[in-house]
């Protein structure tokens, strides 16, 4: 009796999202009850702030074409890790030399610590991520063209 009612509820696919959201609420409450969680001391790619640097939140490297010192998981797999971190394009280098605020637009320029992580040490993540975007774009484009 109860089972048939449950199965009727589940078989309507409009209800499945509600069911999943309910499960998420339950697990979130379980997580809250299991707090506090420990925070590991030895993190990868630790963040250090240097307020005087023009690259402020992202300054990890020395002059371009030198190897900066960054904490990676497997240093033996990326012998050249740190070069991208230290690199700035000539335009960015010019802006860094004349203003103090290049760090706020660091995503605009190739090089820097984020590019190092995104393309070099964790490059496979970025490949999968852009594949997801490519697939989603393909679905949207197919549906759009079919509609028009």
């Amino acid at each position: 009796m109860i089972i048939s009612r449950i199965s009727r509820f589940i078989s309507n696919f409009d209800n499945l999202l509600a069911l999943f959201a309910g499960a998420c609420v339950v697990i979130a409450v379980l997580l809250i009850l299991s707090l506090p969680l420990p925070y590991a001391e030895n993190q990868l790619y630790p963040k250090s702030l240097n307020a005087g640097s023009p690259l402020n939140p992202y300054d990890r490297g020395g002059p371009p074409f030198t190897q900066a010192d960054i904490v990676v998981q497997y240093p033996e797999n990326s012998p050249y890790a740190g070069y991208v971190t230290a690199y700035l394009t000539p335009l960015s280098g010019f802006m860094a030399a004349h203003t103090l605020y290049l760090g706020t637009t660091i995503v605009a320029h190739p090089g820097g610590i984020l590019d190092e992580i995104l393309y070099n040490t964790r490059g496979l993540d970025t490949v999968v991520e852009s594949t997801i975007l490519f697939i989603a774009f393909g679905i949207a484009a197919f549906l759009f063209r079919k509609g028009s």
């Binding site: 993190q43 990868l44 963040k47 995104l118 999968v128």
Partner: peptide
């Protein structure tokens, strides 16, 4: 709270 976090937020 590390640089890794920023690199993970993007994906």
């Amino acid at each position: 709270g590390t640089d890794l976090a920023e690199a993970l937020i993007l994906p």
